[in-house]
Design a protein around this nucleic acid. Sequence first.
DNA 1: GACTGGCACTCGCTCCGGGGGAGTGCCAGT
DNA 2: ACTGGCACTCCCCCGGAGCGAGTGCCAGTC
Lengths: 337, 337
Amino acid sequence: MQEDRRLAVLRAIVEDYVSTEEPVGSKALVERHGLNVSPATVRNDMAAREEEGYLTQPHTSAGRIPTDKGYRLFVDRLSTVKPLSVAEKRAISTFLDGAVDLDDVVQRSVRLLSQLTRQVAVVQYPTLSRSTVRHIELVALAPERVLVVLILSTGRVEQRVVDLSTPLSDEELARLRSRLNLAATGEIIADAVSSLRALGEDPSAGSAATVAKVLVEAMSDHRSDHRVAVGGTANLARFGDNFDTAVRPLLEALEEHVVLMRLLGEATASGTVTVRIGAEGPYEELASTSVVTTGYGPQDEALATLGIVGPTRMDYPGSMAAVRAVARYVSRILDEA
Amino acid sequence: MQEDRRLAVLRAIVEDYVSTEEPVGSKALVERHGLNVSPATVRNDMAAREEEGYLTQPHTSAGRIPTDKGYRLFVDRLSTVKPLSVAEKRAISTFLDGAVDLDDVVQRSVRLLSQLTRQVAVVQYPTLSRSTVRHIELVALAPERVLVVLILSTGRVEQRVVDLSTPLSDEELARLRSRLNLAATGEIIADAVSSLRALGEDPSAGSAATVAKVLVEAMSDHRSDHRVAVGGTANLARFGDNFDTAVRPLLEALEEHVVLMRLLGEATASGTVTVRIGAEGPYEELASTSVVTTGYGPQDEALATLGIVGPTRMDYPGSMAAVRAVARYVSRILDEA
DNA sequence: GACTGGCACTCGCTCCGGGGGAGTGCCAGT
DNA sequence: ACTGGCACTCCCCCGGAGCGAGTGCCAGTC
């Protein structure tokens, strides 16, 4: 059918353009893909597609390139999931299995993702908010100075140094420790915050109040929510010539963690890969970049987001497959820890 | 004197070239700097300088640009230390004073440095090797599973999960904890490693041996020695046109921490700023980049290196001043912690 | 009605040659 | 030792010509 072929043409154009980075013309299209029609027919189809807004020409009498809308259709309806090769799967497991702690997992994931997709990879650290308190530890640095260490179920560790108004003996410290742990250990962050806050506002609690306040602060410190690892920026070299219009704004965005978080968007349920194409994203300057993300976390609860950022002209099926595979694997690792 | 003026000419050329990014000619030079001689004289001087290898011409009948050797002379003998402005100093202190932990200090330093110099900033995390053990904490996750937390004097925290062959009661855990702390707390890493290693090889030590082994591994884990924070890569946009020959190799180098460490070189005594110009560095691909570094650490002991990386055509006095100032300030903060 | 072959046309890319200009090297003069 | 003058070099910019990939359209065929 005509309609089928038109879709096939759109798909072929996207694929060719992604691999050659050049506008694709009717003749080349017929040759490279086994379309059993003449270039003239394809031209008509392309004209129709352009009419509908899926394609454009950089200038009259040049080949066509997909528009954002064209990519959208491609991603939604035309791309078949590209399964990873065995070698790639093995690479993922061997690479990630060697990780020793959370930091290491995140760093390895970033590197892995950027290598698999040859794009810039972004991995958000698991959020505090939904994790639970595993343990609170106090270490006396001096009689009036205590190191407070907060250990969370995701494996994250936060630490603060606290100066107290009165010196604390070892026994008092131990008592304080068990008191705090009693109040917080095992609790989800939100609950721990509220019970500690009560303690922090109790004027009779003394040192306990001071420490509790610091803990509350550490727990609600959204700075750590915004922690992300970025890797593979060297891949931006393949972005094309337009350094100032495309690469520089992207590099800037990658450094601003707040901006980056917005770019990543809400963590979507693990398993569902989100694709944001060009102008669909929140930043005008990044109109020529796309973002492919998914959520991950233990028990497939989407505690954080991970994904890649690249030119709208990217290999969507491959990127989506890689992002999903890495997210799955990382989630499994977090399950074990 | 003739000789003095020739030096002045060299300095002027470096300064002008750095700010304009264009080969500088005799006429412009005389005008911009108050040299009381004619362009012809300057031309003679420049020819002499070129003869000696301090200057080159991109092509005959163009202005001169400094060679690496020219920059070297400039850095060694011609540049006056450019004191930071009051605003800059204040920026440093306000920016760094808000830091809550080691990670935060490092991250803020990177950002600060890149903003001050408008170059790529690199800050190495303080090495484990010369720091001391502040505390070892054990947290029971399950009867046979323990979270081991190692806290070092630099404020760094390492953690590992250990599976034991036999379950451990709370009392046993407490005993193990104090035993380990007795052996390691207060010791310099190297000493702690040797006493723990003895424990780890004692077949009668049971669980203690298992945990000790993990601790030894964590302490001698050089991975963390190579941890670095990088920032300001967007500044590479100002590197000029030669993306493939200059920017891409640099981006790649910045991602490979091992490479990066070599690029930073040995930590030099705090206060001494090291400048590596172009081909003086260890990598051919980075022939057009310079590195400005210095050591930092508590008590001005050079535990780690920080600095900036940029084109050979950079503002050396400004960069050196900024690097030194930030290193000093960070060292002071580490003293307090 | 869908497809095809043919044809005129468009328009970016590359190459080429000529002017303009910044800068140089050199030399004779002070 | 320095300067003014002058001829020369060579990059850079510009406009025009030629090329070629690709298009749109139209008349013709199944």
